[in-house]
Amino acid sequence: MPSRREFISQVSTSSIAALVTAYPITSMAQIDPLVARVRAYAGVGSIKEGRVKLEIASLVDNGNSVPIEVKVSSAMREQDRVVGIAVFNEKNPQPEIAEFVLGPRTGRAHVSTRIRLATTQRIVAVAKMVDGSCWTHTVEVVVTLAACLDE
């Protein structure tokens, strides 16, 4: 018969071990909805992290109006040009925030707007290049006052 202290330490170590082994399996089984959104936007193109910078405050006081800016490092010449930018969220009622189409003379792939955030969540910006490849940047945002969704 183990003492109470031994019993608790056994249970906690075994349950932690179970969690550690179980977690990667469940996370692989459930596809991240944010990743699925990006995949749908990218189509057949490759998805890589980098080149895009999603600028947003990491701590948001008021979720009703949050300034965001998406900057893509690109020479914006014929062969290497951003044709589209999309922004998706994780936990708003709808996963889409906005999709932008950039004309051939954009010159500088910087876009900014103001968005609503329902709660603390991740936001992803995707830039689609003229060759079809996509670049992403994901940011975790903490929201203290949510956008009023059911008032």
């Binding site: 009622p93 925030i97 932008f100 103001r114 609503r116």
Partner: peptide, 11 residues
């Protein structure tokens, strides 16, 4: 020049 599709998440 530029176009945008906006959703409910735009302020």
């Amino acid at each position: 020049v530029f176009s945008a599709t906006l959703h409910a998440a735009i302020s």
